[in-house]
């Protein structure tokens, strides 16, 4: 039970920084933390029904759920895609505004348009 509460705390920290942190690069880091917390939640929940790896064999009746593992595998690869694309956009923004501050970027973008 206590592990689910800790995972919830990790999720809250990530989402809070994603909403309120002013630096865009910290927002990307927060996105990675939220991704990690969700993947951890699925793997830990899926392992609650067994204590053996997901292979066929004599331990088959008490293995963990292989379904969540297959889903989380794709989630991790998509996560690195999101990180790389947003970092490329951040470097693009830096080339124009020379700052990480989201408020400054917004204000100067409004002024220029």
């Amino acid at each position: 039970m206590i592990r689910y509460i800790l995972l919830g705390i990790l999720f809250i920290i990530g989402m809070y920084a994603l909403i309120f942190h002013r630096s865009v690069i910290k927002k990307v880091i927060a996105l990675g933390i939220v991704n990690t917390s969700v993947v951890l939640l699925f793997i830990i929940s899926g392992s609650s029904i067994g204590d053996a790896p997901a292979f066929t064999g004599e331990q088959g009746a008490r293995m963990v759920d292989p379904m969540v593992q297959a889903l989380m595998l794709t989630a991790i690869v998509i996560g690195v895609c999101i990180t790389s694309f947003s970092l490329a956009l951040i470097v693009h923004l830096w080339g124009r505004f020379e700052t990480f501050d989201i408020d400054t970027i917004e204000k100067r973008g409004d002024d220029e348009s």
């Binding site: 392992s47 053996a52 997901a54 989380m72 595998l73 991790i76 690869v77 996560g79």
Partner: peptide, 19 residues
């Protein structure tokens, strides 16, 4: 520790290397 070896390999390669 939770017997998800496939996910562990991917996470280690992606998290420590590519990201």
């Amino acid at each position: 520790l939770h017997w998800a070896f496939d996910v562990a390999i991917t996470e280690a390669a992606v998290g420590a290397g590519v990201t």
